[in-house]
């Protein structure tokens, strides 16, 4: 059985399997300013005061999008597709997330609702018998 693990720790929590749990991005909350940040900060970027770890809302609004056809300046492969979407999503609390977005050009409109999702990342030198699947976060249109 394949086990799914985060591509890197401290960025997100995968869904627990409980109904309605989409997983979560792991951020920081600054009690002094009432603002949220992603990814986790060591200190509040505004006051340099303490921050608290928190999970961010899994739903937000699409701020901008693009579709990358020619990923020449990187080698990270998102599955076997010829291109991929990238977007910025505004979450409640003033956090803007930059992320892969699922779908094709034409699927997205600025201002549409989006929700957190996860997808596997193709790893270099992965063995055929390796039963670990590395996952990273993305967003998809929230049509619910």
């Amino acid at each position: 059985m394949t086990m799914q693990v985060p591509l890197e720790k401290d960025y997100f929590r995968l869904p627990s399997g409980e109904p309605g749990d989409l997983g979560a991005l792991l951020g920081s909350y600054s009690p002094q300013t009432g603002k949220y940040f992603y990814p986790r900060r060591k200190l509040c970027p505004i006051t340099s005061g303490p921050v608290e770890d928190c999970e961010l809302p899994a739903r937000g609004i699409l701020y901008s999008w693009t579709y990358v056809k020619d990923p020449r300046m990187g080698t990270l492969k998102m599955g076997d597709q010829s291109g991929y979407g990238v977007g910025q999503i505004d979450l409640p609390g003033g956090v803007r997330i930059q992320s892969i977005i699922l779908g094709q050009q034409g699927d997205w409109e600025i201002g549409m609702p989006m929700r957190l999702a996860f997808q596997p990342v193709k790893m270099p030198n992965k063995r055929l018998d390796d039963n670990i699947e590395h996952m990273t976060f993305c967003f998809e249109p929230d049509r619910a």
Binding site: Y11, W65, T66, R72, G74, M78, V86, Q98, T136, F137
Partner: peptide, 25 residues
């Protein structure tokens, strides 16, 4: 470096995509 260390969450968005986000907005 990516082949040795593996991909990172930070590396997903390329400069072409980042500035395209500005352009679409």
């Amino acid at each position: 470096m990516e082949m040795i260390e593996g991909p990172k969450v930070e590396q997903i968005v390329l400069p072409a995509a980042f500035f395209a986000l500005w352009a679409v907005r």
